[in-house]
């Protein structure tokens, strides 16, 4: 490629020389001055038209479209940011409420536990009292029974002693005398 380029560049001056000598067909067409006015004329016309087209039509419209898109994207990003902060706030609130609720439920649990224990305690006490009263009642009953039995035994003994004594002696001792001896 480079060699060919060199070869071409080496031959180019020869072509230029031909052109300078007025051999139109042999020289480089680039060196044909007669075509310059036409080329320049049409270049000015076409390029001016292109410039006008770009300046008046393409650039304002394309610029507007690109601007619009940029605005839309930044707006969307803003919206997304706002929604994100909103969502974060909601999450925060939710967390707070959750924390409050769990605290409340903990309180309720401790309170009810306490109440339950209290109730249990009172029930226990009541029962104890009842049991105690029952015990003392029973004890009193037993005591009374014992007293009663004692007296009955004494009376029975008395009667027995009286019967035995009356068989052997005529003089029956009085109850007080027997009681004195028994004690």
């Amino acid at each position: 490629m480079k060699i060919l380029l060199k070869a071409f560049l080496l031959t180019a001056p020869i072509n230029f020389v031909y052109a300078a000598e007025g051999q139109k067909s042999a020289g480089l067409p680039q060196m044909d001055i007669a075509t310059f006015p036409s080329q320049l004329f049409w270049l000015v016309i076409t390029f001016s038209l292109l410039y006008l087209f770009m300046w008046k039509f393409v650039i304002p419209r394309l610029g507007a479209t690109i601007e619009e898109r940029k605005d839309k994207i930044s707006n969307d990003i803003n919206d997304a940011d706002n929604l994100n902060t909103e969502a974060t706030d909601i999450l925060k609130k939710y967390d707070e409420q959750m924390a409050n609720a769990s605290q409340e439920s903990n309180e309720i649990i401790t309170n009810s536990k306490k109440a339950m224990l209290d109730h249990l305690e009172t029930l226990k006490k009541e029962n104890e009292e009842k049991v105690n009263s029952l015990i003392s009642e029973s004890q009193a009953k037993i005591k009374a029974q014992q007293e009663k039995s004692k007296i009955e035994i004494r009376n029975a003994t008395l009667d027995t002693v009286k019967a035995i004594v009356s068989r052997y002696i005529e003089n029956i001792p009085s109850d007080e005398e027997i009681n004195k001896k028994l004690n």
Binding site: A34, T35, P37, S38, Q39, F41, W42, L43, T46, F47
Partner: peptide
């Protein structure tokens, strides 16, 4: 002045 419409002008267009 020669300002003919040439093949060059055509390809500019």
């Amino acid at each position: 002045i020669d300002i003919s419409f040439t093949n060059s002008s055509l390809f500019m267009v």
